[in-house]
Structure formats: structure tokens, C-alpha cells
Design a protein around this nucleic acid. Structure first.
Lengths: 250, 250
DNA sequence: ATTTACATTTCGGGG
DNA sequence: CCCCGAAGTGTAAAT
């Protein structure tokens, strides 16, 4: 519907089988949010996207992220008042509410979208961990993994293993350049494990890079760093998959 | 345009004055992303939103966040191939690329959106800090702030002050329930400042809540917690604004 | 340009 | 359901 009357839009939205269709609404609106925080947005042209799962988002014509939104599972209330279409979205759990007041509507589309396609993401931190387990030599020749996600106070050690000399080694994996936070995280684990075992412990950050300030801190704390790129890990995973596929077929 | 031919859609997008209009494109598509990570998305019905600032996002009919996106400043390339409309978005800086292949188009809208309305967000962590400075008693009777965002190795102390007895006190402010990470952050600051000054230091987390596990850790480390809600801070700020407005007018 | 920390972060996994 | 941490995090402010 192009330039529908407010009443037409109201009716079309009301009829929408609850939560089963996706709605696009473009027009002039103002927005008020009240919940964990609160916000107000003065009138302007925006795009409102309401999804099948009850999530909704208000987009300005700039910025990647929505200016206001409500997570999946929200409940909608519609009404016409003062020549405006008012949409209220409640989030039952978090007692949050969003009120969008449309004074003009340029476009309304109610869409039945079918989307069951799978989404695959590669080069994640989890893939990096898997690649190191599959081919420990990319971290260091002679490294032998013992455990992944080993619980320690406080948190979890990404990879715990033994180096070529048999020294217990804590590996902290990051998919992007590691900063001071990562260094301190690693230090906590090393200290905690040293306390626990009473033995010498090595600590290594495995990441595609290490921030300048973090380098000094790392050195000062007697920890180490090894360049590991997510892309290379992804390739190791892919080659392993292919290898296993070939073995399966032959 | 409803159910436009691929060629019509291609032409309409080509003509769009570069980056000056917002585009909504709904239809069946698949997506490939290559950059910091990589991803593939199998065919399905989605909403593509291209904004005036060159940002774009692909939305599935569920989930709040887009399944694929490109930040503001991206460059678009369009072509028709194999009965599909192919949209490539390059990010010149991060050498990232997104390729969206539309096989069917249900809706195409090219929109000239005018949006200069101001956006105001309240109850942020910054407002919480301001409220404590304005009315230190909400933290503790007799508390006197000395500095905000005081640099320390490593990081910044949210609020540094003196308690009623004159003891140096580090305050770590969180706008939502604080977890272990916040406790450890506070402990680093307290330890660092104790080392720096050689004096006794108190450490207080000011937040609307404290996670279960973090409570034990807090107690074990000799730190403290004070309930401070962002909403209450917002009210203090608002009342102060009103007061100053009144003073200004009288 | 780089670093730093917040965010109505969102999202997913594990206990 | 709570808790915890990753994310193609994005974003803005400070250095």
C-alpha cells in the first residue's frame, strides 16, 4: 500500500495474523522508549520493521543500528488517536515499552516471508580453537592439548596443554587483535592454575595481533604471544573436512 | 514497485542518486560475506535495507539483528547475471565484501527520507556518574568525589573520592547488574591504587544489581556493593535541570 | 589514526 | 532461568 490512510494502515496491521507476517512501515513518526533506559526521538521519516517473531526496529535513514527497537516476543497494541497511528510494543518480561507515533505513512507492506535457509559463519573463535586442537603445531611445535574450556576460578581456560618440554601451558584464543583485557584474563588463569598446581605455568595468547600497550604488559607479566589468524584456522578446518569426506567416500 | 522484473529493479537502483536515497528490497536471496570472518546464507525470503549513508543490512523474518550487513560508507556494485540481480557491497577500508544474489523480487521501494529529529537517551552510565557527583549521598552519606575517569594502570577509575572517614574510595559504576568481570575490574583499580599510594583503599560497585557468583567474589576480595538504579539517577539529573532552569528564569 | 570502554548491546551455550 | 562471554560486535570519546 502506498500512501494509505491511517485507518487503512490500522486495519491492515490489525488483520495481520498475529506475529506470523513481517511488516514494513515507512513514514513520519516520533518514538518514546521506557525500560532499562529511556529515550525520546523527535519526528522524522523512518522505516519500521516488524518481524514474525515479534521483534521490531525503527531505522533512521542513516546509521547501521536501529535508533529504537524491541526484542523478539514483544506484544503490539495499535490505536488511532489525534490523526496519528500509534503503535505500542510491550516486552512482557523486561517491562519495557516502545511507543511509535506515525503522523504520515508513505508505505505499508505486510509480507509473508519464508526463510529456512541455513546460515554458516566461519573464522569464529570456536573454529580457531578447533584448528589448534586439530593441528597443535600451528601454535608451537610439540604442543599437546589436554583440555578445552577447562573451568577455573574465575572463568574457563580456552585450551590447556603441555608444551614440548612438558610444561603446563594456558592458551587464550582471540579471533581479533588482543588487548590489555585479554592479557589480564590470561594472567588470572595462569596465576590461578599456578596456585592450584604449584607448578610452573606458561601463558600464551593466540590471536591475529596484539595491541601496542598490551605488548608491554604481556612482557612485564612474563606471558607470550603467537600470531594465529582466523582465516588460516578456517582453512585448516576446511581441509580436514575435505579429508574426512574423501576418507568416507573411499 | 511490486514484483518488478529484475531488469526494472536493476534500472531503478542504478538511477538512484548515489547514496542519497534509502532502498527497501524484499525477495528471495542468498548472501556471501568475506572479510574479518566469512559466512554463507542459503536462499530464503529477506528484507534488504540500504541507507543514505551507504550502510546496508539483510534481515531474515526473525531475529533482531541483521544476518549480514555492511557499515556506513560502503560502495555498491549492481549487475544482472543468470537471471539474478547481484548486489555487491565493498567496504573500502576493511577490505570486506558482501554479495547478495536476488533470484526473486517481491518489493522494491526507493525512498527519500528526511530525518533531522533529535534523539535523546537517558539513564546511561554517564548519567549515573553525573548523578553521583551531583548527589554523592545516594552512594553513601559523607562521600566526597575527588575525580572522575581518573587514569590508572590499566584503565580509568569511574569515580574516585573520600568516604566519611577520609578513606580513599574507588567507585565502579555499572548501568546494569554487575558480574564477575566488574568485580575483577574494581579489584585491579583498588590494588593498583593501594600500590600507588600505600594507603588503605575502599572499593565500591555502584549498580542496580550484583550477579550471584559475583557476590561471593566481592566478599572474598573485601570489596563492597551499593544498589544504584539508572532510573533514580535519571530523576536526579532531571530534577537538577529543572532547578537550574527555574533559577535561570527567576 | 589508535585506543578504550559503553551498549536498552544481541546472541548463544551451559549449568 | 540465570550466568557468562563472544561478536564480522557498533559506536563515541579521548589520546
Amino acid at each position: 500500500m502506498e500512501n494509505p490512510h491511517l485507518e487503512e494502515a490500522h486495519e491492515a496491521l490489525r488483520v495481520r495474523r498475529s506475529r506470523e507476517e513481517t511488516v514494513l512501515l515507512v513514514g513520519e513518526c516520533s518514538v518514546k522508549y521506557e525500560g532499562r533506559a529511556s529515550s525520546t526521538l523527535e519526528p522524522g521519516d523512518r522505516v519500521l520493521l516488524i518481524k514474525q517473531d515479534g521483534s521490531l526496529q525503527v531505522h533512521r535513514p542513516f546509521d547501521l543500528s536501529p535508533v529504537n527497537w524491541q526484542p523478539p516476543g514483544s506484544i503490539l497494541r495499535l490505536r488511532i488517536q489525534d490523526r496519528s497511528l500509534i503503535i505500542r510494543a510491550y516486552n512482557p518480561r523486561g517491562r519495557e515499552s516502545l511507543e511509535i507515533v506515525f503522523s504520515k505513512i508513505a508505505l505499508l507492506a505486510v509480507l509473508d516471508l519464508r526463510d529456512s535457509g541455513s546460515f554458516f559463519l566461519h573464522a569464529s573463535e570456536e573454529e580457531m580453537r578447533s584448528a589448534i586442537l586439530l593441528q597443535p603445531s600451528i601454535l608451537e611445535e610439540g604442543f599437546k592439548p589436554l583440555a578445552v574450556e577447562r573451568p577455573i576460578e574465575p572463568g574457563f581456560i580456552d585450551i590447556l596443554g603441555l608444551d614440548g618440554r612438558g610444561t603446563l601451558t594456558v592458551v587464550e584464543v582471540k579471533r581479533r587483535e588482543a588487548g590489555k583485557e585479554a592479557v589480564l584474563q590470561l594472567k588470572r588463569y595462569v596465576d590461578s592454575l599456578r596456585m592450584e598446581t604449584g607448578k610452573e605455568i606458561r601463558g600464551i595468547i593466540a590471536a591475529p595481533g596484539l595491541a601496542r600497550g598490551a605488548q608491554r604488559m604481556l612482557a612485564a607479566l612474563g606471558l607470550e604471544f603467537k600470531v594465529i589468524s582466523p582465516q588460516r584456522c578456517e582453512e585448516i578446518i576446511r581441509r580436514d573436512k575435505e579429508r574426512r569426506m574423501t576418507e568416507f567416500l573411499t
